[in-house]
């Protein structure tokens, strides 16, 4: 048991070794959010911003419903009229893609919020309250973790093929996807629970809810941000997987359904490679943006941690 910390001046100590500023009470740092920014995060946010703006604003200017088939001549090449050409169903590829990205993002964010909310509530409470409550809850969590999501979705999709409500898919992903994050958050809380400042809060008169919200939550919030973005990734990915197999509601434009239609209509054989390549590139870019943002946040949070 070492009482004395390493007395060599480590860079983390140096950062902390400023004389306490006495002048202005109540001021924490110069700008509270500037520390967040690093190259990776900025790039990721820019990409996501482009996608968000593009997919939510541009549809307002769509000349007509891109999902409507036979609007144009089939398989037209790239031209000023059709920036990505048209596809085998007579739809404008670009407009379809824009709507597809929008729908995928809506699904992703909806699932992200759902999963984050449920897993946070369950993880925090199970980790902190402990006892029989924790044991029962973790039993449920572990059961859900071991249930494989994709096979279930495939089975469901096969059973109600074509009659899938788009948001039912989202709901099912939430139901089967919350468990993993809940477990992670619970383990974080388990270790936080032992820390001295929790006892300090207790002796300051704080009750369980106050401790959860004011003491524990800030330490978990970094993970939550990263987890939220990863969940979006996960949701879009799962939906796309289903759509490519044809088990999602393929009438609704999503990144996956484009690929489904393109494969079913032999885009490569008809020479309409744009139809297939465009959604793939868009998916890759979107995932890149999400990934960069997620790891960018992670890096930013980590760089702030002195002695965590």
């Amino acid at each position: 048991m070492s009482d004395i910390r390493d007395t060599a001046v480590s860079p983390a100590d140096l950062a902390a070794a400023e004389p306490a500023p006495k002048a202005t009470p109540g001021r924490r740092e110069r700008a509270s959010w500037l520390w967040l920014l690093n190259a990776r995060l900025v790039l990721g946010l820019i990409i996501i911003a482009i996608f968000l703006l593009g997919s939510f604003v541009l549809p307002l200017f769509a000349p007509h419903d891109p999902a409507q088939q036979a609007t144009y001549m089939k398989n037209l090449k790239i031209s000023p009229a059709h920036w990505l050409g048209t596809n085998g169903l007579g739809q404008d590829t670009l407009w379809y893609l824009i709507f597809a990205v929008r729908n995928s993002l809506i699904l992703g964010i909806f699932v992200g919020i759902g999963i984050s909310a449920i897993s946070t509530a369950i993880g925090l409470s199970a980790g902190f309250i402990g006892g029989a409550y924790e044991r029962i809850v973790m039993l449920i969590v572990d059961s859900f973790i071991t249930i494989p999501l994709l096979p279930i979705l495939i089975i469901l999709g096969a059973l109600i093929r074509g009659n899938n409500n788009f948001f039912t898919i989202g709901l099912i992903i939430v139901i089967f996807g919350w468990a993993w994050n809940a477990r992670t958050i619970r383990s974080m809380v388990l270790s936080l629970r032992e820390r001295e400042f929790i006892n300090m809060a207790r002796f300051s008169g704080a009750g369980t809810l106050a401790i959860l919200v004011r003491e524990i939550f800030p330490y978990v919030s970094a993970y939550l941000v990263v987890g939220f973005i990863n969940t979006i990734l996960f949701a879009i990915n799962t939906e796309a997987t289903l759509a490519v197999i044809g088990l999602s509601k393929v009438d609704v434009p999503t990144l996956g359904s484009i690929i489904f239609w393109a494969l079913n209509y032999n885009a490569l054989f008809t020479g309409n490679t744009t139809w297939l390549v465009a959604p793939i590139v868009a998916t890759i870019l979107l995932f890149l943006g999400l990934f960069l943002t997620s790891t960018g946040f992670n890096a930013a949070f980590a760089s702030r941690r002195g002695v965590a």
Binding site: I4, R5, D6, T7, A8, V9, D13, A17
Partner: peptide
């Protein structure tokens, strides 16, 4: 005291 440089000197 801590921060005086003794550990750095050792290193």
């Amino acid at each position: 005291e801590s921060g005086c440089g003794k550990s750095t000197l050792m290193k």
